[in-house]
């Protein structure tokens, strides 16, 4: 019966010491705020499908005409992967910010280091659910205002006021299409996460 065994691969690790360590960062924001663009600026964007049980939250939003008995709906997520050094892989997960997707936020946020909330100044209220969620979760986050070409110019302080952000939440301006800009947003986030660490061992600089 050798053929039955042929597709069982030799493992590259027996008691399996990790060949890389995966870390998660969330990219949240409202519909059209530029989440996919941001992920795509710094890594390859890969699609991920989930089948979610329909809840009353989607009634009236998802068109179910002609699909009587359909009880699940497909939610498409994007994610990107950045390899840092030899052992660290940073995963960026796009998190749909609309309230009706809140049933999947906990799963996405599980184990995350922190989050970037992408804000579009034309629709700042789209950020409220994400801001509330991360505040409640006590997950470190930064707000990155995506500067669209035709968006009205606001001072960062005005945006901070409108979002009612705590003083220790960084607010940065960014261009989600630009790799240097996205890099700076992520660096700001990781610095913020480090600042929230208990001051036991060594400082991050």
């Amino acid at each position: 019966m050798a053929s039955a065994r042929s597709d069982i691969a030799p493992a590259d690790a027996r008691a399996a010491s990790p060949s890389f360590i995966a870390h998660k960062i969330l990219i949240a924001g409202g519909f059209g705020s530029g989440k996919t663009t941001l992920v795509g600026a710094i890594s390859e964007v890969r699609p991920l499908r989930t089948e979610e049980t329909l809840t009353t939250a989607s009634i009236g939003l998802d068109d179910l005409t002609g699909v009587d008995g359909k009880t699940t709906t497909t939610v498409a997520l994007d994610f990107g992967r950045i390899t840092l050094g030899t052992k660290i892989v940073l995963y960026l997960f796009g998190m749909p910010g609309q309230e009706r997707f809140s049933f999947m936020w906990d799963e996405l946020a599980y184990g995350a280091l922190g989050a970037v909330i992408l804000a579009d100044v034309r629709r700042l209220d789209d950020c409220f659910p994400s801001v509330n969620y991360f505040e409640t979760l006590r997950l470190p986050f930064v707000v990155a205002v995506n500067c669209f070409d035709d968006s009205p110019m606001y001072e960062p302080e005005e945006v901070r006021l409108a979002l009612d952000l705590d003083a220790d939440v960084p607010l940065v301006l960014c261009d989600a299409r630009d790799v240097a800009s996205v890099k700076q947003v992520l660096i700001t986030l990781v610095e913020t996460i480090a600042d929230r660490q208990p001051a036991t061992a060594g400082r991050v600089r």
């Binding site: 870390h23 950045i82 840092l84 940073l90 890099k183 660096i187 996460i193 061992a201 060594g202 400082r203």
Partner: peptide
């Protein structure tokens, strides 16, 4: 996640 890991992520970024 310890500071050494965060430092490594920062350096990498």
């Amino acid at each position: 996640t310890g500071n050494d890991v965060l430092q490594e992520i920062l350096n990498g970024l």
